[in-house]
Simulated assay, not measured.
Amino acid sequence: MPAARNQQQAAPAAVTSFARFALCGGGVGVAAGFAVTALGTWIPWVLANALVTVVSTVLSTELHARFTFGTGGRATRRQHAQSAGSAAAAYAVTCLAMFVLEHLVAAPDAMLRQTVYLAASALSGMGRFAVLRALVFARHRSRTTTSAPEATPRPLRAVTANTSAPVDRAALRRAA
């Protein structure tokens, strides 16, 4: 029964975290989409995507640490490194989506490129949410969603005999 109660308590936290993730990550993602499109007109798209991914990952990791997952402060170096790993996977997904688009459509316009990029970003964003919540920022969340502590056995008291006094064998048998 306590496990079911903890799952019920954790569900709103997950929904709230996802809403915050969508707000923060989605806002950064939409801005990143415009930035990639603009930069992609001056430099190769893959390079533009890489630059924007780095900047948006640092920004979104800070937002997620402070707001989404409520760690109460700035993201640590470890959290930035782990978040960068999930961002690398997201980068691969967006590159693959754009590669497929280029092979399916001879001359995609900016609106189609933006739509494909944002769709791939949204898909990879859902995966990133799962990774960030379960692995990167899990330590802070686990304090509030742990199950009830299990009963620990009481330590046994040692029976000692006072060697200076006569030993009461009956008392020793009762204590054992």
Rank of each mutant, 00 (worst) to 15 (best):
M1A: 15
M1Y: 11
M1T: 10
R5A: 15
R5Q: 12
Q9I: 12
Q9R: 15
P12Q: 05
A13H: 04
A14T: 04
T16A: 12
A19T: 10
A22V: 12
C24N: 09
G27T: 02
G27E: 03
G27N: 04
V28R: 04
G29T: 07
G29C: 04
V30D: 02
A32D: 02
G33Y: 01
A35S: 04
A35Y: 00
V36P: 04
V36R: 00
V36Y: 02
T37Y: 01
A38G: 02
L39V: 00
L39Y: 01
W42D: 02
W42I: 07
P44I: 03
P44K: 01
V46M: 05
A48G: 01
A48I: 01
T53K: 01
T53V: 12
T53Y: 00
T53E: 04
V54H: 02
V54W: 01
V54Q: 02
V55S: 03
V55K: 00
S56C: 06
T57A: 06
L59W: 05
L63K: 04
H64E: 12
H64P: 07
R66L: 14
T68H: 00
G70R: 12
T71M: 13
T71N: 12
G73H: 08
R74M: 14
R74V: 14
T76H: 07
T76R: 13
T76E: 12
R77S: 15
R78Q: 15
G85D: 07
G85V: 08
S86Q: 13
A87Q: 11
A87D: 14
A88K: 07
A89S: 11
A89R: 11
A90T: 07
M98T: 00
M98Y: 00
F99T: 11
F99Y: 11
L101W: 00
L101E: 06
E102Q: 15
H103L: 08
H103S: 06
L104V: 14
V105Q: 10
A106N: 12
P108Q: 08
P108A: 10
P108W: 06
D109H: 12
D109Q: 09
A110D: 10
M111T: 15
L112K: 06
R113W: 04
R113V: 11
Q114Y: 11
L118K: 00
A119V: 14
A120Y: 05
S121W: 13
A122S: 09
G125H: 03
F129E: 01
F129H: 02
A130I: 05
H140W: 08
S142T: 09
T146I: 13
S147N: 05
P149E: 07
P149A: 09
E150A: 15
T152P: 01
P153L: 13
R154V: 15
L156K: 08
R157Y: 09
A161L: 15
N162K: 01
A165V: 04
P166Q: 11
P166F: 09
V167I: 15
R169I: 13
L172I: 10
R173I: 13
A176H: 08
